[in-house]
């Protein structure tokens, strides 16, 4: 019974795709092979391993043609028994925004018009923490930190109950087994419902073709992370999926000059992040929304 159901679904899909393809053949033949391949590409989670391999070799070829660089596209899966968690020491953060720019470089984000920032550092007057309405996004003093202010870096909080995943009409975004919320850039239809649903502004839209200077590409990329994106799709922080699945720290953790950023496996009792949760007084942003972020803010003293 199960098998028959599956074949029927497959049949409907193949038949209608074939019909559609047949009907639109004159149109499709006028645009390139690439567009046809893109149009027919399956959802990432529905591809077999062989199909994924084919897709990434095709991507590498295409990136070479387009950007003149040899990218290595990884499809490395989640490491078993990991659940990534992040800690951020608010008493140490000086608001220098080095994390913001390290992130942009690491993740091949659009540099300008508009600049795609996966981390936003907001400045709040001391004495206030929860009401973000008085936050300043574009503070620009000669020196940080400033006496009267504290800084809160905010990025995707990798919620356990992600509202963005709940609302996406086409399953283009989902939570990986290691807790990362990722996007299939080739499946996203660009409706931006996830951005409306996110309480942390964890998502950024490619309003135009992202622009990255030719010599600035990071060539080590992950399919679900920092590979070059196209216009009109959504993108987001993945805790540097391309790094952490290979045992490295996220770029923002590495670059932070004050050591405010902690990272590790929540399932490992010996990890740094577990130490933070055990020994510091942590809180999470907008806990009242029940999104269960895996991003813990804390204070040193």
């Amino acid at each position: 019974m199960q098998g028959r159901n599956f074949t029927r679904r497959e049949f409907i899909r193949n038949f209608s795709m074939a019909t559609f393809f047949g009907l639109s053949f004159p149109f499709l033949s006028s645009c390139g092979k690439e567009m046809v391949e893109d149009f027919l590409q399956k959802h990432f989670l529905e591809m077999t391993h062989e199909e994924k391999e084919l897709i990434i070799s095709r991507l590498e070829e295409r990136y070479f043609k387009k950007y003149g660089k040899k990218f290595t596209v990884s499809i490395q899966e989640a490491i078993p028994n990991t659940l990534w968690g992040y800690g951020l020491d608010l008493s140490r953060c000086i608001g220098c925004r080095r994390c913001v720019y390290a992130c942009i470089e690491e993740n091949n984000c659009s540099r300008q018009e508009p600049q795609s920032q996966w981390i936003r550092v907001i400045r709040l007057r001391k004495g206030s923490l929860i009401n973000l309405e008085d936050s300043e996004h574009y503070y620009n003093p000669d020196y940080v930190p400033e006496k009267e202010f504290i800084y809160i870096p905010v990025q995707c909080q990798q919620c356990e109950n992600p509202p963005c995943v709940k609302v996406c009409p086409v399953h283009a975004t989902w939570k990986e087994p290691d807790g990362l919320v990722v996007v299939d850039y080739n499946w996203c239809i660009g409706c931006r419902y996830c951005m409306a649903a996110c309480p942390y502004r964890g998502r950024v839209f490619n309003w135009a073709e992202p622009n990255v200077p030719k010599d600035k590409w990071n060539l080590s990329v992950h399919y679900l992370g920092n590979r070059p994106r196209m216009r009109n799709v959504v993108e987001k922080c993945t805790f540097c999926i391309q790094r952490i699945r290979k045992g490295r720290y996220p770029a923002c953790v590495e670059v932070c000059p004050t050591g405010s950023r902690k990272f590790g496996n929540l399932l490992d009792p010996q990890s740094e992040i577990r130490y933070v949760i055990q020994n510091k007084r942590t809180f999470r942003l907008k806990e009242d929304l029940n999104t269960e972020p895996k991003f813990y803010y804390f204070f040193e003293a």
């Binding site: 679904r9 409907i12 899909r13 209608s16 795709m17 559609f20 567009m35 893109d38 149009f39 959802h43 009409p169 086409v170 283009a172 499946w187 996203c188 239809i189 660009g190 409706c191 931006r192 839209f205 216009r231 009109n232 799709v233």
Partner: peptide
């Protein structure tokens, strides 16, 4: 919609 070309992702069953 940003990606009208992918509208078929929304069609049930297909």
């Amino acid at each position: 919609l940003g990606r009208v070309d992918r509208f078929w992702h929304m069609i049930p069953l297909i």
